[in-house]
Design a protein around this nucleic acid. Structure first.
Lengths: 106, 106
DNA sequence: TTGACATGCAACCTTTAGGTTTCGTATTTT
DNA sequence: AAAATACGAAACCTAAAGGTTGCATGTCAA
């Protein structure tokens, strides 16, 4: 698997496993082994997913002794936000609805 | 290929071809044959992509004589918006920057 | 009613995605 | 020094994704 090919972000978040990883890493950074306890697959598989997220610059790595802590790096999500914003003009009323829903969530 | 399995939207927009289709259909609805003139692939291939977008409810179809007009149906993108909103808290400053950028686009 | 057009389905092929196990190498701990 | 831990790379497998061509069908125009 390639090193720094910067695959597009849309592909990176397409996989539900990777989306869950982002959610977990948002709460708290952690090394691979610990992260992989949340998934029904091998550590190596988790490691591969992390590589993809890392290439897309959605997570960053910080080496600390023998472990490497992975951390959410949400800046690249802006690209997604921008893409979305183009389509917002087509459903403005619905957006107002959602805004209301989110604000009154609890 | 399945009929109405409602594949998740993240997977539907993962493919660059499908994203371009959404952009084109946003500008104006059109039948398969016309849409496929924008892509270096067969009409059947385009038709398959449309099926995926249709299953994800990102496009709707309206039969009109012997042709079927495909049309953007952006409502489902709300799911994406909701997902994104969770991560916004982690880059509020950048968001402000983007907001400024978008507002002063022209 | 015959010919052209618009479309989707079926069968097939090739590449990629996601997963496994095995191994090598740092780093810690004892 | 030796044993344990954390990790990624390599080689491999299977299923799914994206593409092709060749029908079959429905509709429109002559």
């Amino acid at each position: 698997m390639g090193a720094k090919e910067k695959p597009d972000i849309f592909q990176a978040i397409a996989d539900p496993t990777r989306r869950k990883m982002l959610t977990l890493l948002a709460e708290c950074e952690m090394p691979v082994t610990r992260l992989s306890q949340h998934f029904p697959m091998s550590r190596t598989a988790v490691s591969k997913h992390l590589r993809i997220l890392s290439d897309a610059e959605l997570v960053s790595v910080e080496k600390s002794g023998r472990e490497k802590r992975y951390k959410l790096q949400p800046d690249s999500l802006i690209e997604l936000k921008e893409w979305l914003s183009f389509f917002e003009q087509f459903w403005e009323n619905k957006m107002a609805m959602l805004k209301h829903y989110v604000e009154n969530e609890d």
